[in-house]
């Protein structure tokens, strides 16, 4: 009897302790790492270089280069606090060619405050604020972007994406395809942002190293909000004020947060 009582009391105590430690887990000053994993696909297939993919209109394409710029990553925690990754480092090139054997490309965010995150926002391309900084605060990113072929050589500014390869349709075979969309200074702004509610909470801790798995269905670049025909001026997309905003809106819609790993 005495023992059971004691056991109950003990259990209750444990409960309270564990409960309270859960509620008041002190995270101040704790930082961790968060990985964003990008996985490019075409519909329900994995993307593979040199493979022919069909479009809705009977055209097909295959790519030799597939990359795009992700920037201004920010995450919101369960209390509504927003963490902006430091601006100078908050710009990344997601390059399929740098993927692992599974075609996954990682962006690692360091020094993220420990918290339970519920929402992620990121930009595709370079926003006006960053562009207007000029060379200020760009560190090595300009050189990196240039090596990666993400800077125009005949104009100033960034290519937000590079889909290079060839396309075919009823009349032409293996014609050059170059989708290099970008902004033109302040005259044409093709930067876009997307926000996703995370399917479950991402717990960033000193000891935990969670991962957000983002899938990108690149077929939507051509068959997205607007379906475009390569034959009608969409095989070469550079800075045209007509075609680039269409591609920018389509590109924005390719992303989806597939799942989250807490480990």
């Amino acid at each position: 009897m005495k023992i059971t009582k004691l056991a109950w009391a003990l259990l209750l105590c444990l409960c309270i302790i564990s409960c309270s430690s859960d509620n008041e887990e002190d995270l101040t000053g704790q930082i961790g790492t968060l990985d964003l994993k990008f996985d490019n696909g075409v519909g329900d297939q994995d993307f593979i270089f040199g493979t022919t993919y069909n479009k809705s209109n009977g055209e097909s394409y295959k790519l030799t280069t597939l990359k795009y710029i992700i920037s201004n990553v920010r995450i919101k925690d369960s209390k509504g606090n927003i963490f902006n990754y430091p601006t100078a480092d908050n710009v990344f090139i997601v390059d399929e060619a740098n993927g692992n054997n599974a075609g996954e490309i990682f962006i690692t965010l360091n020094n993220v405050p420990a918290a339970d995150y519920t929402e992620i926002t990121f930009g595709i391309g370079i926003d006006q604020t960053r562009f207007l900084l000029g060379a200020d605060g760009q560190g090595d990113f300009l050189a990196e972007a240039q090596s990666a072929g993400m800077l125009w050589s005949w104009a100033t500014g960034y290519r937000f994406m590079r889909f290079d390869g060839t396309y075919s349709n009823g009349t032409v075979t293996d014609e050059a395809l170059a989708i290099h969309m970008g902004s033109v200074g302040t005259s044409l702004d093709n930067y876009r942002e997307v926000t996703f509610t995370l399917p479950n909470t991402v717990r960033v801790r000193e000891v935990a190293h969670p991962e957000i798995h983002i899938e990108a269905d690149i077929s939507k670049v051509f068959d997205g909000q607007t379906s475009v025909n390569f034959a009608d001026g969409y095989s070469q997309v550079h800075t045209s004020s007509e075609t680039t905003p269409v591609i920018a809106d389509n590109l924005k819609s390719i992303f989806e947060v597939h799942h989250v790993h807490n480990n």
């Binding site: 562009f131 207007l132 000029g134 060379a135 200020d136 300009l142 050189a143 240039q146 090596s147 800077l151 125009w152 050589s153 005949w154 104009a155 100033t156 500014g157 033109v184 200074g185 302040t186 005259s187």
Partner: peptide, 23 residues
């Protein structure tokens, strides 16, 4: 073609016809 003075030199610097370099 250049909309920010800071970035303008990238054009001549990397142009095959001008300075032909990489950053």
């Amino acid at each position: 073609a250049a909309s920010h003075l800071d970035l303008q030199p990238i054009i001549p610097l990397t142009s095959e016809l001008e300075m032909g370099e990489t950053l």
